[in-house]
Design a protein around this nucleic acid. Structure first.
Lengths: 191, 191, 191, 191
DNA sequence: GATGAATGAGTGTTCATTCAT
DNA sequence: AATGAATGAACACTCATTCAT
């Protein structure tokens, strides 16, 4: 970890990159532009990130990590399962709705050849606590006895699609709708 | 008379492009390579597709259309709703599993800035029949009274996630699993 | 001269080329466009002109020849020198003003590397009668005893510049102005 | 600090471009070749000139400006009109003869669609002092009362044609000839 | 002769990365 | 560490010319 200390600059670069990707899209992300937006010289970028690929991978992981940790903040191991589940589910939806931009970025990069196998694995790793939580639900006989990744997909898939519709402006996700969606989610996985 | 314009070439170009995108990923798709893979001169490509963007957009739509039409093939308006629904659902899953490559391509491009608004709209349009079908289910009081796009997302999301896990080799989707997934899908949207 | 007989087509091609050069300028003259403008297939162009260079050279010579012959039409060997001179001078000005487009084309190509030495020589050759005429003037002691090409340049230069100003719309060349210009021309070369 | 932006490079690029245009002609001027001739990487060219068009326009203006300023160097407002006029005229001829290459370049580009309206206007602007000078001659009743641009054309036209003949090697412009030419010029415009 | 689809060498320009300062 | 000028490989696209029909 002989990374230079100025963690603040790293954050600035992340912000600049994110902004540019959201503005000009994935292609068209130019290192020179990132530097300019971050108020740095091009060369400085390369002090903090070995190359473009690394920047993107680290940003991706950074965002994914933040999002996941934020989601898990509401987790209270002492809650009954269904309560905890709903808290998590709602929290995830709210986070996704609150920062559609970050989500959009994640989506945009998820299927890109820029992302390293390693990055993807590390990112998946972040969901471990969630998987454990679901496992406990299975143990308790509350949810279907299926591979946890499958269950996770079952839960994440619809949420992502719904959020997409939301910032598509195809429809607006109201509190009431959230309740409906939650019910659907629960109906689909409950034992 | 000059050589007649060979419409078959378009198909050849589609195949070559698809192959290359799957091999080398989205970035790194070079027109020269497409031409070579299609056994054409670079310039010939530009006779059939005005530029790289157009090629990608048209291929995207082409694949999406094929997939959707194939899915709808099994639709029989005289079937009872649930029968028809299951047929369609299963068919979609099977198609997705059968040609993961094409699906992967679609995924890869869906979030790309390469895709035109127009292409996306046209592609969404393809799902109209499905939306109508779901509407009829709502009318009959069989499924939840929610916006059809939302319901669609509720159905597609999990399938896509599951298929991803499948060609990730994280897990194998067996016939039995399909039945389970179907049940979950149905449980989630049924009235 | 195994040139195909359809002289008419050649004329059509000339017209189309001229039109395009004037519209889109010298660069940007594309053979395919010429063909289209002439209502021919690209390949047909190559039946009549071996290549782009030849087309341009022949068109240049064609225009120059036409212009020169037209100018000489008014020449009457029985006229007294000054009368003949004025007739020719006026005629040249009028032709230049009447078809500024053709003149513009000629100008545009004159300094181009597209023009062959041969074409330039042939074109210069066209002025032979004029040179002879000027020689006779020298013999008669009416005009300065200087190389005829120099005298020609002395005459053509100002006319071309004046015509440029005219279709520049910097000024309008009226009949009266023509008389003034003629006087200046004559004053400059008269013995 | 990075290497300071070397303004001298602009001059080097100008020289290289000029050289190449004179060698290989207007078409066939390739940016890669310019770079090589200037001992730079292709990309470096684009740091100093946004694109080929800009390079050409700026070079054109640069040369025209140099030539004009050089001509005006001999101008002394205290000289009597005719003295000043002859000085300027002779100076212009000498400059044109001394650097035929630059002149050739200017000619070569003057009628090209590469030149922007703006460049042409700016270039014309350079002649303003000359026009003023001619105006003063008109005021003094020494030269014909005609639009100055017309008078300028009357003067420049023959000079350019004569110089062309010179480096055509059609004839040699000796000192004596210069005197003759000057006389002709003066005869043509004097009141 | 006529056609226009096919060709592919050629070119302007970009942009990730390096490196002299 | 920071800078930003310099680099040059890479790439989309063009267009004069050919040639199968």
């Amino acid at each position: 970890m002989s990374r230079p200390r100025d963690e603040n600059k790293i954050e600035v670069i992340y912000e600049a990159t994110l902004k540019l990707v959201l503005e000009t899209g994935f292609n068209g992300l130019k290192m020179a532009d990132v530097a300019k937006a971050a108020n740095l010289a091009t060369g400085t970028l390369y002090i903090y990130f070995k190359n473009k690929g690394v920047l993107i991978n680290e940003l991706y992981y950074h965002l994914k990590k933040n999002k996941t940790l934020k989601m898990l903040e509401v987790f209270d191991a002492t809650d009954p399962f269904l309560i905890a589940f709903k808290k998590l589910w709602m929290n995830y939806v709210n986070i996704s709705l609150a920062e559609p931009e970050r989500l959009k970025f994640i989506e945009q990069y998820t299927h890109t050849s820029y992302l390293t196998k390693k990055t993807i694995q590390q990112s998946d790793q972040l969901l471990k606590p969630l998987e454990d939580f679901l496992s406990s639900g299975i143990m308790l006989g509350l949810i279907k006895q299926l591979p946890v990744q499958l269950l996770l997909g079952q839960l994440m898939g619809p949420i992502n699609e719904s959020v997409k519709l939301h910032y598509n402006e195809t429809l607006k996700i109201t509190s009431q709708l959230k309740e409906e969606l939650f019910e659907m989610a629960w109906n689909s996985i409950k034992a």
